[in-house]
Write a protein that binds this DNA or RNA. Structure first.
Lengths: 204, 204
DNA sequence: TGGCATACTGATAATACGAACAGTACAATA
DNA sequence: TATTGTACTGTTCGTATTATCAGTATGCCA
């Protein structure tokens, strides 16, 4: 979404979501005011205009309850492919790598993931990423230093913390038993950036 | 759904769905009439009453656009409350503890969670549960030894691994800096069981 | 220090909308 | 053949809802 919300604006947005989930209708200005504790309906109006200006909702003028939530307007979850063992040399999202799909609501993570990767091994255990965890990955060819990335080294795909220096890059594991990997900046292929984690202790 | 729809009723229902998908609002009687080609708003009214009687929609009387689609109302995901700082002495799910809600698809975790708890502190860091993580909790008054539980000790709510012995229980942190807590079995209050974890590195 | 955004109160006017009533026509069914 | 349900037209009335104007207070930034 466009710009950031103030606390109050976020609360009003939640209030609209609640109402929609609850009654199937968007609230009126008066209802927002009541639920938020405003004395005046115009307070709600002001917030709505702010939310529209920032791109979170669309207001249909002169229509009652004419508040359209923009994020969740078109279905509110994506079926994301779960990539497991990545066959050597194949593109990470190749069909043969996809094990299953998992529904992930939009907005569950700040950054919208492109796919999920089932973690193998415990090289990132100190970063709280365990064997078997699903990590949500946003496809990207670039990343900033300090981010956890999915990188390709030769034929292998690995999850590490990226450390960028002047001329080269280091892929940093989060486990004392593993060694950092130094790669010349021009040989580093980044597949994506870590944007979320899902763990199910009962899985498998 | 209850009973079968006539052709016209089905068309009106589709019309409502379209409107909702399109504008985020349910249509008014007049809009239905226009889109269906009726000359009278009452034609739409009649169809709506029929649809309500047959259980497909719910009409909220005296509210504009007060048409609630019942089938897809909850879809295949639940809006789970996120519980943060738990006020001392209050029930964990009390309204004052709920910060926001997050959509979680059914089936994302093997066990269906009741609510989400925003983790505070790092006492479970070695179990890969970090400060700020959302853990999915299934409400339960019992748990098995070895499970990660949400337990109440006095006024405080805490997340620990449960170890059950003959006559007492131990709440085991996953961090060397913290001490295990021994509780007589009859004083232990279990709030719920850990059934999943969601982490957003970009949150906050 | 002035300007601007947020965060409201309070009131009025205009209009969007639903409810209700009185009809007509037609097909199914008992 | 009478009854009931569907499928409408057309109109009126009251209220639900939005829009807008006029203020106040506060914090932030240049």
């Amino acid at each position: 979404m466009s710009s950031k919300l103030t606390l109050r604006q976020q609360q009003v947005l939640d209030c609209i979501r609640d109402s929609q989930a609850d009654t199937g209708m968007a609230p009126t200005r008066a209802e927002i005011a009541e639920r938020m504790g405003f004395q005046s309906k115009n307070a709600a109006s002001d917030h709505l205009r702010a939310l529209e200006r920032k791109g979170y909702i669309r207001l249909h003028s002169d229509r009652s309850r004419g508040i359209q939530l923009l994020e969740s307007a078109l279905g509110d979850e994506d079926e994301l492919p779960v990539v497991g063992k990545v066959a050597a040399g194949t593109p990470i999202e190749a069909v043969e790598n996809v094990q299953r799909t998992v529904p992930v609501p939009r907005g569950l993570f700040r950054q919208r993931p492109t796919y999920l990767l089932q973690v193998q091994g415990d090289s990132m255990i100190d970063a709280g990423i365990f064997d078997g965890d699903l990590i949500a990955v946003r496809k990207s060819e670039t990343a900033r230093s300090g981010e956890i990335v999915v990188a390709r080294i030769g034929e292998e795909v690995t999850v590490k913390t990226l450390r960028l220096n002047k001329s080269d890059a280091t892929l940093l594991p989060a486990n004392e038993d593993y060694e950092p990997i130094q790669v010349p900046a021009d040989q580093l292929i980044i597949e994506g950036v870590f944007v979320g984690l899902i763990r199910d202790p009962n899985a498998h």
